[in-house]
């Protein structure tokens, strides 16, 4: 093949790529702010729902603190009652599922007991791992973490719940391990001042 024809072929392909890049840049410029806003709204909604489920009327979510010494727990939000007393923590967790990282929000009492959890962003399989997004999915973990450990394997679950996770065992293990790590960290955090957090 002659060099000029190579240049023409390469040039045409480069032109197609350039036009595609420009169009995608424009679409991204329009959609990026909306996507960021959606993510912020989803986080705020998740925090409010979990704070409500702490069982303390009027519970408030405090300022976020970044957790630097954990690969699972990213951020901690202290929860306080209307009188300023510490109620517990909401932790932003990262679990490893079938489709990669899964973002979770989980609420703990200072004893490490899980009182609420929500699956946030994830790439799990629709109809299988995605079932973890349903609020009832987390019921198998709620109430554990203090006296009873958080179930981290299928054999720790009653028969009915074990059936419910069939086909999505990797998702279950990813969620369970992240929640268990969160429970351990919640016990270490000393109060709204967030010892261990930066």
């Amino acid at each position: 093949m002659k060099i000029p024809s190579l240049v023409v072929i390469g040039g045409k392909l480069a032109l197609i790529c350039t036009v595609a890049a420009v169009i995608l840049g424009l679409v991204n410029a329009v959609t990026a702010p909306v996507i960021v806003e959606n993510q912020a709204k989803a986080l705020a909604r998740g925090l409010a729902v979990i704070a409500d489920q702490s069982g303390v009327p009027g519970a408030q979510v405090g300022e976020a603190s970044t957790i630097s010494d954990s690969t699972v727990v990213q951020t901690a939000y202290p929860i306080t009652g209307t009188d300023g007393a510490a109620v517990g923590f909401i932790l932003q967790l990262v679990g490893v599922g079938y489709g990669g990282d899964m973002q979770l929000l989980a609420g703990y009492y200072p004893t490490g007991e899980l009182f609420s959890a929500q699956m946030m962003e994830n790439q799990e399989t629709p109809g299988l791992g995605k079932k973890a997004e349903a609020p009832e999915y987390m019921e198998m973990f709620i109430g554990s973490g203090a006296d009873a450990p958080i179930p981290t394997s299928k054999s720790d679950l009653p028969a009915g719940q074990a059936d419910a996770i069939t086909g999505a065992t990797i998702t279950f293990i990813g969620v369970a391990r992240a929640l268990a790590d969160g429970s351990g960290l919640a016990r270490e955090l000393e109060g709204p001042a967030t010892g261990g957090a930066q």
């Binding site: 329009v30 959609t31 909306v34 996507i35 994830n122």
Partner: peptide, 15 residues
């Protein structure tokens, strides 16, 4: 991108 921006629940569902 359009689904993530304007139909986020469908985007999350299809993954």
């Amino acid at each position: 991108l359009v689904m993530q921006a304007y139909a986020p629940s469908l985007s999350r569902s299809l993954g």
